[in-house]
Nucleic acid binder design. Structure first.
Lengths: 232, 232
DNA sequence: GGTATATGAATGAAAG
DNA sequence: CTTTCATTCATATACC
């Protein structure tokens, strides 16, 4: 049984992708030279996409692993896209929650890609197509797709305005210093850090590619392991 | 999706500001040009964490797979220890301690007061004002305010309905949703693990169709496993 | 040190 | 399209 576990899942935070940040981050208590971590929106977005793809790959690896070791049941089927779990119903208690559609990483990736293509409002037909395509990767309905774009658009817009607001509030050369957090931290060489971290990271930060597909990522993995991929 | 609001939160607490290195931009007295976007410390932090996490994931998966295929023994092999050292190796500081904004008592007080004034929906402009005001007492962003009201409203409502149901216990199928049952998930260890990691809330991993040849992918990763040595 | 709870944040869906 | 709601997730904190 593989179910033995200690749910010691060390978290990490899942809220990535927030790129509507301030500009010249707050200074530490002391002078400290200039520490500006520059990254364009495009780069950020790219990174986000990469991570998404990474997620997908890991996910699929997990599946592969599961299939390999699947001498056991395939239960544990999380509610995922199913609306009702009969087992729960049997227990005589509530009919289980989760009726909400949740995009699989793969679907998300596709959605994001389509969204990024800019072609704003997906027409009725387009939604149909998309739904159809995504249907290959998991349960999904046109409504889901529609809602997703609706939300995506709205939130993207809000983010943007918030970001703009921030820019106006703190002029680029004004080091906003909050007297509250003087917890200055030792400066560290971020470039160095990233380079040491993973062969993908730095590269991904600097390369701008319009389309980060699975194949693309795969190819990167192929050459990873050497920092030279940085110059890809 | 993207965090719609700016997430430059985090204020007091033992959060440490990382105002260090520069990525790809010359710094000087006051460098930042108007056209560059800059990452906040929090954002950088997130990226670092994510990258590290994903690198680790791949590594672990490879190991897991090897272990399994070599003897088909799925014993041990835990995926714990996620927040690995590389993250802190940078400057010897914990960088995992910062992410949730926490209102200062003063801010809370003000928020509560505003909330009690009844004007349910703060509206965009109002939020901006509030944010501005609270900013005097600590780092805060519009998102924080927005979320706070959102949560406050929702929870206020829930509590209310909960209290009104304490005299009606008969309905067997309705609400009375106790947050106790959230441990009923039946995921297998590492799937759970992943779900907690993904920035995209990888919720439906197993639903995905096992398309394209993965053995191929896996082999690629194995071969390029250089990066993993960093963690071992 | 392991749960239990409070709460900030994310997001699908629906209302307006 | 915009705003709000409902639900869920994750984390910080408290309690045992």
């Amino acid at each position: 049984m593989e179910a033995e576990h200690d749910n010691n899942n060390n978290n990490n935070n899942n809220s990535s992708k927030s790129n509507g940040g301030i500009i010249g981050a707050g200074a530490g208590g002391s002078c400290s030279s200039l520490y500006v971590k520059v990254m364009t929106d495009e780069q950020l977005e790219l990174l986000r996409q990469q991570i998404s793809v990474y997620t997908t790959i890991s996910d699929q690896l997990v599946q592969m692993h599961k299939s390999i070791t699947s001498q056991h049941d395939l239960a544990g089927l999380r509610l995922g896209n199913l609306y009702c779990d009969p087992l729960m119903a049997c227990s005589g208690h509530k009919i289980t929650s989760r009726q909400r559609w949740t995009p699989t990483p793969l679907q998300l990736q596709i959605l994001e890609r389509i969204f990024d293509e800019g072609n704003g409002t997906p027409s009725k037909q387009k939604i149909k197509d998309i739904t159809n395509e995504l249907g290959q990767h998991g349960q999904i309905s046109e409504t889901n797709v529609y809602n997703w774009f609706q939300n995506r658009r709205a939130r993207s817009k809000r983010k943007q305005s918030a970001s703009t607001t921030n820019q106006l509030e703190l002029e680029p050369e004004t080091e906003v210093e909050s007297p509250k957090d003087n917890k200055t931290r030792e400066d560290c060489d971020y470039v160095q850090f990233f380079e040491n971290l993973s062969p993908y990271s730095v590269k991904d930060l600097h390369i701008q590619s319009p389309d980060i597909g699975f194949e693309h990522l795969l190819s990167k993995i192929e050459v990873s392991g050497c920092y030279s991929s940085y110059f890809l």
